[in-house]
């Protein structure tokens, strides 16, 4: 097995074995979306109108819940030191660990979105596009979260600070993610231009975020 694949498989296995990360994120997503209609009242048209935005905001919050795990456990038990001396460069390590976070958090959350969409009266024909949008946008969510996770490494109660640092960076993802879904439901215009912007944001994050995360990791290990 190549070093990169070994690290990816290990991270996915760890997330699965330790269970908490995926379960808590999915549970949080469910609860947040489920209480929205109680706060907004039973106006089905209103719910359908705001459903994409609600689903996206809740997804970002749920993904952030497990973001500090990207590096925290490996930092605590010294694994990060050994990973840093290994044959893979640190940006590559950061990229693989972000990818593992996307596989274990981004994809399950995106796949759960249509089920929760039912609670918000999201039109059925908009669901495939919503899932597609989320699958395209969540890589940016995981990779940018890795920057926050590496910056807050070694701090107590880093989760809240991480959210403060990272949530503003999610604004472009949110804007283009929601507008793709809204275009599909209420129009006017084609949903594809914002969708392509979303893909571009994800691709740029995949390339740039690991470099920033690696720089922060170097500082944290000093």
């Amino acid at each position: 097995m190549s070093p990169a694949l070994a690290l990816l498989v290990r991270d996915v296995k760890l997330a699965w074995r330790e269970g908490g990360a995926i379960g808590v994120a999915l549970g949080f997503y469910l609860v947040v979306v489920a209480i929205m209609p109680f706060g907004l009242g039973p106006d089905l048209n209103l719910l359908a109108h705001i459903a994409p935005g609600m689903l996206w905001v809740a997804l970002l919050l749920a993904a952030l819940l497990s973001a500090d795990r990207i590096f925290h456990n490996d930092y605590e038990d010294g694994t990060l030191d050994v990973l840093a001396t290994g044959p893979q460069s640190l940006p590559m390590v950061a990229a693989i660990k972000s990818l593992a976070h996307w596989l274990t958090t981004g994809i399950p959350l995106a796949l759960m979105a249509p089920v929760l969409g039912l609670l918000l009266n999201l039109p059925l024909d908009a669901m495939p596009l919503l899932v597609l949008t989320m699958l395209a946008g969540t890589p940016a969510v995981s990779f940018v979260a890795a920057i926050g996770a590496s910056l807050t490494l070694g701090l107590r109660r880093s989760g809240l600070l991480l959210a403060l640092l990272v949530l503003p960076l999610y604004v472009p993802v949110l804007i283009f993610g929601v507008s793709t879904a809204s275009m599909a439901i209420v129009g006017p215009g084609s949903p594809w231009p914002p969708f392509l912007m979303l893909c571009a944001i994800s691709l740029a994050s995949i390339v740039l975020a690991p470099l920033a995360a690696a720089a922060a990791l170097r500082t944290a290990m000093r």
Binding site: M1, P3, A6, R17, T79, D81, V82
Partner: peptide
């Protein structure tokens, strides 16, 4: 090879899995 104060061990993996990962990761 740096073996420091921290053990770099994953507690939810077996002893064999821990070592197997390092064999793979260190190529």
């Amino acid at each position: 090879h740096y073996v420091g104060h921290l053990s770099a061990i994953k507690t939810s993996f077996s002893v064999g899995e821990n070592l197997a990962f390092w064999t793979d990761f260190l190529d």
